[in-house]
Amino acid sequence: MTPIVLLDELKKFIEEHIKDIILSVRVRGSSGELSERPAEVHKMRLPDKDAEIKLIPYILLQFLTGKDEQEEGQSAESECKIRIVVATYSEDGGEGALDVLNLLTRIRIALLKTGIIGKQFLIKKPLEYIVYPDSTAPFYMGEMLTIWEIPEVEREVEGLWL
């Protein structure tokens, strides 16, 4: 359950730190003008295939991998990788890519300044991020790969083999 708790905590953290970044929405309002709002944050997957375009702007948090290891003579370590995908919309090509970079930068700075999420999840370096150079106008995407130190699971049963 720990990665699930991390996703929940990360969602709240990101929502708090990006709530003042107002972005264009593809769907036009009743007056024919573009609507605007902060990016919505989703966990693991979007609701359906159509959501990939309908929900833009959005941030998607995806659990990628987890690892528990203990090298000889060392204490046990647990970590997981979370990908943060950012998608924006803009009729101005230069602005759309900058919107992605702005969100990634805001998240990056907040994570590095805080260093810990939910009092138990520690961010580790390297922290990698990219704005995709593809020409997918009017949609723009990027992502950040984060590595988290998570609480290790303690063995509860002891036996003769220990």
Rank of each mutant, 00 (worst) to 15 (best):
P3S: 11
V5K: 09
V5L: 09
L7M: 07
L10K: 03
L10R: 04
K11Y: 04
K11D: 03
K12L: 14
K12W: 10
F13E: 01
E15P: 00
E15L: 05
E15V: 00
H17E: 03
K19D: 10
D20L: 12
I21D: 07
I22H: 05
I22A: 03
S24I: 02
S24D: 14
V25Q: 09
V25S: 06
R26F: 14
R26Y: 14
S30D: 13
S31R: 15
G32D: 10
E33W: 08
L34I: 06
S35M: 15
S35R: 15
A39M: 03
E40L: 15
H42W: 12
H42D: 02
R45G: 00
P47F: 13
D48Y: 12
D48W: 13
K49T: 10
D50K: 15
A51M: 09
A51I: 07
E52D: 12
E52W: 14
I53A: 08
I53D: 04
I53P: 00
I53G: 00
I53T: 11
K54T: 06
L55S: 10
L55K: 07
I56D: 03
Y58N: 02
L61F: 09
F63M: 06
L64M: 14
T65W: 07
T65R: 08
G66D: 01
K67R: 13
D68I: 12
Q70D: 08
G73T: 05
S75W: 14
A76N: 08
E77I: 09
E77F: 13
S78P: 01
S78D: 04
E79M: 12
C80Y: 04
I82Q: 01
I82D: 01
I84V: 12
V86C: 12
V86G: 05
E91A: 11
D92W: 11
G93I: 07
G93Y: 14
G96Y: 05
G96F: 07
A97L: 11
D99Q: 14
V100K: 01
N102V: 06
N102A: 14
T105Q: 03
T105C: 00
I107L: 10
R108A: 03
A110H: 02
L112G: 05
L112S: 10
I116N: 02
I116L: 03
I116C: 00
I116H: 00
G118P: 01
G118T: 03
Q120T: 02
I123E: 04
I123C: 07
K124W: 05
K124T: 03
K125R: 11
V131M: 02
V131L: 02
Y132S: 04
Y132T: 02
S135F: 15
T136G: 11
P138R: 03
P138H: 07
M141F: 15
M141D: 10
G142S: 05
I147R: 10
I147Q: 11
I150H: 06
I150F: 11
W161G: 12
L162N: 13
